[in-house]
């Protein structure tokens, strides 16, 4: 029989574990934004070496599953004498992985802008930094918002993978809970509800942002 009290009881510790899930996804997307922007800039730069580097970065990170990246990263750190907390390793890996996708999101948005947008700015004598800051980026950000929110939702779900390096986020916490209560269905259903609530909130945030920036 499905026990509603067990379901409700599991919600509390899992909600507590959600802070790690959020920390990893938000930290990951923040780091991913920084690195992804740099990689995108490298990919659009006139230097061939930088462009090749960006292409390599993106194809490697998109081509290897996040789980494998996590394990490789986590187990290679001690080799180079770094002893970082599992949490830091997790955020860095998730962030690096996200950077590949974010860089592609930016590139897609920038390429989708009609060339005339920048030309009109260049023609009145605007400097390249102003063309980027005032004409290209504001539009690219607006266009990318749905894809970026989508990426953040994917990260929330992908963060369940970091349980392999021992972080007690929602998925790992529910596994532990299920093992002690012998009530897997109630516990995992509670976990599912929490993921759902988080992602519905993010989707709502996304719609609100889109609405605010719409022209």
């Amino acid at each position: 029989m499905f026990s509603i009290p067990v379901f409700l009881e599991s919600l509390v510790p899992l909600f507590w574990a959600a802070r790690f899930t959020l920390l990893i996804s938000v930290g990951g997307i923040a780091l991913g934004l920084v690195i992804g922007t740099l990689v995108c800039a490298a990919g659009l730069s006139p230097s061939r070496a930088l462009r090749n580097f960006a292409a390599l970065w993106v194809s490697f990170l998109r081509g290897v599953p996040l789980l494998v990246q996590l394990l490789v990263f986590y187990y290679s750190l001690p080799l180079i004498g770094l002893d970082v907390p599992a949490m830091v390793a997790a955020i860095v890996t998730v962030g690096i992985c996200a950077s590949a996708y974010i860089s592609e999101i930016w590139r897609g948005a920038i390429n989708a802008l009609p060339r005339g947008q920048a030309e009109a700015a260049v023609a009145i004598g605007m400097a390249p930094t102003d063309v980027w800051r005032r004409v290209i980026l504001p539009q690219a950000v607006t266009m990318s918002l749905p894809a970026l929110i989508n990426e953040l939702i994917l990260l929330v779900k992908a963060s369940s993978l970091v349980s392999v390096v021992g972080i007690l986020e929602i998925t790992r916490a529910s596994q532990a809970q299920a093992a002690t209560t012998f009530r897997p269905l109630e516990v995992y259903l509670a976990a599912a509800c929490i993921y759902l609530v988080i992602n519905l909130c993010l989707a709502a945030l996304g719609r609100w942002l889109e609405h605010r920036t719409a022209v």
């Binding site: 260049v122 009145i124 022209v215």
Partner: peptide
């Protein structure tokens, strides 16, 4: 370029 104005077929206004 400051002293040369240009008008394009597709207007090229900045939509934002």
């Amino acid at each position: 370029r400051r002293s040369i104005g240009m008008v394009f077929q597709q207007f090229n206004l900045w939509p934002h």
